[in-house]
Design a protein around this nucleic acid. Structure first.
Lengths: 241, 241
DNA sequence: CCAAAAGTGTTATGCTTACACCCATGC
DNA sequence: GCATGGGTGTAAGCATAACACTTTTGG
């Protein structure tokens, strides 16, 4: 169980263990709401395997950081963003999910506000030669088992919006109720009644008016922000018993 | 990224990698409902670290099995039970959670019926010298970060019973409504109204009468079983929007 | 004045909750 | 016959869902 380095010569590339060990990575599903669409950030792989195919951003963990620290570090290295909403999603570990060998990945789930998505700039790293946002409902073929990870992430996102008021995490700091409704309709993939939506979301007390208006082509709309208590308030009423 | 063995001499204990790798384990939280109490199976460690302290059953994954296969294999090796309700809980990977080095654990969550719990027999393995059920609300000091894992597992179990009708997974194949209510009250840690509980649980259609009665000290009680559709029916009504 | 999006109330229905007494059996 | 747990119904309050028109602005 000891994690000794090779004791003959201190060469790089020499970590020797009594039993075989898997590699462990973190992969991130970054969601943003841009151009009235639910978008996911993918990178195009620059090397084998799956060269030129699209994949989730991510990378190997370091030995001295926690899993969440690894996710936040990779996120900052690859996109420059920090202090975002992030939670662990699921751990994928089928033995054949990576042709290079046994690689277990801990998937994370990130919701970016419009401001965070705008300031994001991809540092095309060593093994990525492109990166861009994709419409969640029109994705390319994906490397590894990343299609399964995205399917799972969409389930989680839907669950979140069905049961909590966290949809505003995907919007700018100030937003209109119509914009918020658009997020819910896009994620849940169904139309919603405007009056019922407004009544329900306002009744939770997580939103407050900013006093400002969104000027546009037509009648200006009131702007809202979410209140401090909103994020931890993942309130949901119970079904049982 | 290659997982070559040492090429000098083919000794056991020689797996050499270019970069350091963590060990990966699975740990299992086994719940059963015994003696009107919510119980958790713990093993007493026979070796260092945390010698003689209580811990969750679990073990290292093999290279050719998936995470869930590893969990089911360990479960069968350590307790003899198979084909149980099992789901992935969360992955714990703080760098200092194991004093022997970097060990990441994927925690699993198991619900045992009364029959499964009864047939369970612990094969005291190499590093366990005792094993027994503990009341979930009166646990000993635990090894590693297993107290955090159990806290998380209890949250998940509560969530499950609040939102689904899966409480019967902890009972025998035939059970009375009072027994089922007792499971809910114990897990949720609050008293429930008998009439409302019965109406609600019966209205879901996941239960059916077996026609048999539980004979006992007093008036015999009708016995129920869950219907086939019950397990996948993790129905819950939405809060938003 | 026209187009476009913002904003607003009411009603019917069904679910939730609170609450108390009789029933069947063993001893 | 009494102690014990099994079994049952109703009414009030609340949340939900369905539904259409007026308001405000820009061009």
């Amino acid at each position: 169980m000891s994690s000794l380095m090779s004791n003959e010569q201190r060469q790089p590339s020499a970590y020797t263990y009594e039993y075989p060990r898997p590699s462990v990575t973190v992969d991130m599903v970054l969601y943003a709401f841009l151009g009235d669409q639910l978008q996911v950030l993918l990178i195009q792989r620059g090397g084998e395997p799956f060269k030129d195919q699209w994949a989730l951003p991510g990378g190997f963990i370091n030995m001295e950081e926690s899993l969440e620290e690894a996710a936040r570090r990779e996120l900052e290295e690859e996109t420059g963003v920090r202090d975002v909403y992030l939670e662990q999603l699921y751990t994928f570990g089928a033995p054949d999910r990576d042709p290079r060998g046994r690689v277990i990945t801990v998937a994370y789930f990130v919701l970016l506000s419009a401001e965070e998505a705008a300031q994001l700039q991809v540092r095309s790293g060593d093994d990525a030669h492109d990166a861009r946002w994709w419409n969640m409902y029109d994705l390319p073929k994906l490397a590894f088992d990343h299609d399964r990870i995205l399917e799972y992430a969409l389930q989680r996102l839907r669950w979140k919006l069905e049961w909590t008021a966290l949809g505003f995490l995907l919007l700018p700091r100030e937003f209109t109720l119509s914009e918020l409704q658009s997020v819910y309709e896009t994620v849940l993939h169904e139309p919603l009644d405007k009056r019922n939506f407004r009544r329900k979301i306002l009744s939770t007390g997580v939103l407050e008016e900013t006093g400002n208006k969104r000027e546009g082509d037509h009648r200006p709309a009131k702007l809202y922000r979410f209140t401090a208590k909103a994020i931890e308030l993942e309130q949901a009423r119970r079904r049982f018993p």
